[in-house]
Amino acid sequence: MCILDVEASLEHFSQSKALHADTMLVVVEPYFRSLETGRRMVGLGKQLAPERLVLVANKVRDERELKAVEQLAASEGIAVAGAVPYDERLLDAERADSALLDFDPHAPAVTAIEELARELLATDGDSDGGVMPGRGALVRGAAELGRDG
């Protein structure tokens, strides 16, 4: 299993390392600008055609904000795989130079990411990761190293 934390900028996105992923998580905040960026990234993601393309809502404060992300997902025909609440503990952890998981294992954001992990595993169609055609060293290496067990 391999997790790529990809560069922020859109320019590097369309032809980048993300190409080699079988699952793409587009993280969005429930604000207009972030949602619009998310929509563009989903559009680029569709061109790359990963097996799974899903949204993850982050810093969600209430139902209304979650609805805004769900609306984007519905209009793009994709799922919201997880919703992580706005969590002050994350800022506290950063101030303490600590990972959230070490700082507060029971923080609401951790619980939500746990649910996201469960959801991703439950809907993983190809757990050995060997199907992607891929190109370049990254995907070959990742496929070899990513085999579970």
């Binding site: 299993m1 391999c2 997790i3 790529l4 934390d5 990809v6 922020a8 900028s9 996105f13 390392k17 993300a18 080699h20 992923a21 079988d22 699952t23 793409m24 998580l25 587009v26 993280v27 969005v28 905040e29 972030s34 960026t37 998310g38 990234m41 993601g45 990963p50 993850v56 982050n58 810093k59 992580v84 994350l90 990972a99 959230l100 998981l101 954001a109 951790v110 990411i113 746990e114 996201l116 992990a117 991703l120 595993l121 993983d124 190809d126 757990s127 990761g129 992607m132 995907v139 990742a142 496929a143 990513g146 579970d148």
Partner: peptide
């Protein structure tokens, strides 16, 4: 599973990636 986490800068993708990585590892992956 090869997972790419993307998003606008500051959206929190690194926090999610790091936490997700460790939680998946704890599940034996």
């Amino acid at each position: 599973m090869k997972l790419a986490v993307v998003g606008k800068g500051g959206v929190g993708k690194t926090s999610i990636s790091g936490t997700l990585a460790r939680l998946l590892a704890r599940r034996g992956h």
